[in-house]
Design a protein around this nucleic acid. Structure first.
Lengths: 132, 132
DNA sequence: TCTCGCAACGTACAGATGAACGCGATTATA
DNA sequence: TATAATCGCGTTCATCTGTACGTTGCGAGA
């Protein structure tokens, strides 16, 4: 609820790794960073520290090193981030992005099938008279 | 097609308006900016200037004012931007984002229908034996 | 012709960001 | 135990961003 300071792109990228791992030490995160990025260990460390300062992660001491784990629910952060992105690039409209994702990128037949199932589920849950 | 300098979030937001309008003067763009943003005219002007410097827009003189128009195909820029976003937040996977968009946001039954049609079209185009 | 207002341009400037170093403490290793 | 490798912490630092102001030139009305 508090207005967490926004996380920058690079920070988010690091936060995602923590989310994927559940919780991790600097080194563990560092090892997951795409080698192509060529980030220094120290740099990753800095991003993690900033993420903690901004309220996205918490730490717990484990021996000599500290373990970072999510403080805010990842889904929450993702949601906000996507919202902002959508707002700026598509004036808030969801559909154009979905369309872009489906048509302009390579997506497999399997994934299409999965999507279809998702739509089915959606319609089931929302009945067909979704007043709102 | 060289490596254009990346456009910042705020800049992109302004660029999108130019794309929507096709081409426009500073004032026309300014008038389209979400009032809630409370951006100054001068600020918008700065963003446009930077966008030109970064190679996203070109200008043509029209009387005393100049008209901005896209230099790089908007679709191209959107693609790159989405790519980057996807990379950082979802490690490059497309599906999770689509799922998020469908489930976590309010999307109307109409839109769902449209999506379904889109999937149909996709399957038609890509045959059903999409090796890969 | 004088004056206003708008447009463009250059300039400003604090705070965010990307990226990394050095130091001292601690631990693993030779 | 001496030495090398780790860690976290505090700092640094250039650049990018967000946001805006002041000055100047020009075209339109008084």
């Amino acid at each position: 609820m508090g207005k967490r300071q926004p996380a920058s792109k690079a920070e988010l990228e690091i936060a995602r790794i923590v989310w994927d791992l559940g919780s991790a030490t600097v080194r563990q995160v560092f090892e997951q960073v795409d080698p192509a990025r060529e980030l220094d260990f120290k740099t990753v460390q800095t991003y993690l520290r900033r993420l903690e300062a901004k309220g996205y992660l918490t730490t717990r001491q484990a021996g000599r090193s500290k373990v970072y784990s999510p403080k805010v629910r990842p889904g929450q952060v993702i949601r906000e981030t996507v919202d902002d992105f959508l707002q700026r690039l598509f004036d808030g409209a969801t559909l154009p992005l979905v369309q872009h994702l489906i048509s302009e990128r390579d997506i497999s037949a399997d994934e299409i099938r999965e999507l279809r199932e998702m739509l089915d589920r959606w319609e089931q849950e929302h009945g067909d008279a979704d007043g709102k």
